[in-house]
Amino acid sequence: MAKSDTNKNPAKGDVQEPGRRDFIVVATYAMAGLGAAAVAWPLIDQLNPAADTLALANIEVDISKIAVGQSITVKWRGKPVFIRHRTADEIARANDTNLDDLRDPQVDTARAEKPEYLVLVGVCTHLGCVPLGQKTGEVRGDYDGWFCPCHGSHYDTSGRIRKGPAPTNLEVPPYSFLSDSVVRIG
């Protein structure tokens, strides 16, 4: 059994070339590391949204009852979404805007799949308040869209920022029309 020349005298610490003991030590630590990672992953991943939260990631909204000129607010992923059934006048004004006047230039057609229905996330892009303009009688701001009372941001009939501290236009969420009367958001 005198084959262990490679390890010389294992009792002394002066092994020059790697031997069997080093292999097993490294292998043990490597397995321990893999094990620790395998344990850590589920504990971290459980922080991610659960199945019931993900299920609420998409909602279907019936828009057939919204009269022309009327707006509704729905809750999507914990935030308000404005759906406005725009008048012809509002659509025209949105299209007629010179892009140079816009802080965040975007054409209206890029923001509304069907021009009659505008779907926007109702959160001011400044510091997160919910702008006014949804209910009848509420202030709509100088551009007849929405007005954020917190710091005075004015949005136009396409939800684009025109005046005030907000840096970007009101966000357009991912949405699609499942039919003429049902829109799916998210």
Binding site: P42, D45, Q46, A50, A51
Partner: peptide, 13 residues
């Protein structure tokens, strides 16, 4: 039950 069904790896934890 939500932990068991909806939370990621909840059943295992």
């Amino acid at each position: 039950e939500r932990i068991m069904r909806d939370v990621n790896h909840g059943w295992m934890i």
